[in-house]
Design a protein around this nucleic acid. Structure first.
Length: 270
DNA sequence: ATGCCAGCATGTTGCTGA
């Protein structure tokens, strides 16, 4: 079972790269962020033609998240929006239970719940955007705690907009006072992890220096001035099955790339 | 200290992102 997360920075601009990734990596589940379009604008036909079912929580111009599953897998118990704030209208969370047969093995997959998350950026720190970010992280922690009580495999994947540790930035000093790296942001992320999650990429490669985002500006990509902000957090039942995790770095080098690249984990059958 | 780049809106510039 291969699960990927990717902030595509506009699905309409990136559907070609996405289909290429689906054909190349053949992920079973894909969590997308920053669709930047409403549900009606989602390029479903191209994605379905590549063999995937699509569920979205879209929004005009900003945010927007989606879940894709490779046929004949299916999604059920779809939850749109993160609980805990009825007034929150930003499209940043979609969750589903994955069921059905693995296309490769033909065997029924073990119960698995997956969420695609686009955490608020939080800058500027002096604006209401920063408390919104911290509140979102706390809402996510409380919801994650409730899901954890089911004791089934759970994967919370997405763009967390949090640099967990200094080794997750090429130049940590440049991010010192940024919402992505402030001590309060990192502490809130650690509190989420402390509910019992494993940071999959960190667990597979603790050395650091792996990045998932390079700014379009200031030559960040050619200078490898990246940061690691896209994460897959695994419940114990999922972490027990963790085989490998990898960053699809080559996609940043394509024409008209997203500023993020996919991160993928491989889970063994239960 | 600011803009650098990129995408979207009802636009010829402003907002947002990270």
């Amino acid at each position: 079972m291969r699960i990927a997360t990717w902030n595509v920075n506009s699905i309409k601009q990136r559907v070609g790269h996405l289909v290429g990734f689906l054909e190349e990596a053949k992920p079973d589940v894909v969590c997308l962020q920053e669709l930047k379009c409403q549900d009606a604008g989602m390029p479903r036909a191209e994605i379905e033609a590549a063999g995937y079912a699509v569920e979205t929580l879209g929004q005009k111009a900003y945010n927007g998240v989606a879940l894709l599953v490779r046929a004949p897998l299916q999604m059920s118990e779809i939850r749109r929006g993160l609980p805990g704030d009825e007034a929150d209208e930003q499209a940043r969370y979609i969750e589903a239970v994955i069921t059905g047969e693995d296309a490769t093995t033909g065997k029924a997959v073990a119960p698995l719940r997956v969420a695609s998350i686009y955490l608020p950026n939080g800058n500027p720190v002096e604006s209401p955007k920063y408390p919104y970010k911290l509140a979102f992280l706390e809402r996510l922690r409380l919801h994650a705690r409730a899901l954890m009580a089911e004791e089934t495999a759970l994967v919370l994947a997405g763009d967390y907009n949090v640099i967990p540790e200094p080794e997750d930035a090429a130049d940590p000093e440049a991010w010192r006072s940024d919402a992505l790296f402030l001590p309060q942001s990192r502490a809130a992320f650690r509190r989420l992890l402390a509910e019992g999650f494993t940071d999959a990429l960190r667990a597979c490669d603790p050395r650091g220096g792996l990045y998932t985002f390079w700014d379009y500006q200031a030559g960040s990509w050619p200078r490898n001035q990246g940061i690691r902000i896209d994460h897959l957090l695994l419940s114990p039942q999922a972490a027990d099955r963790l085989v490998s995790a990898s960053v699809q770095k080559h996609l940043r080098g394509l024409e008209k790339p997203s500023d993020h690249v996919p991160v993928t984990v491989e889970l063994a059958p239960a």
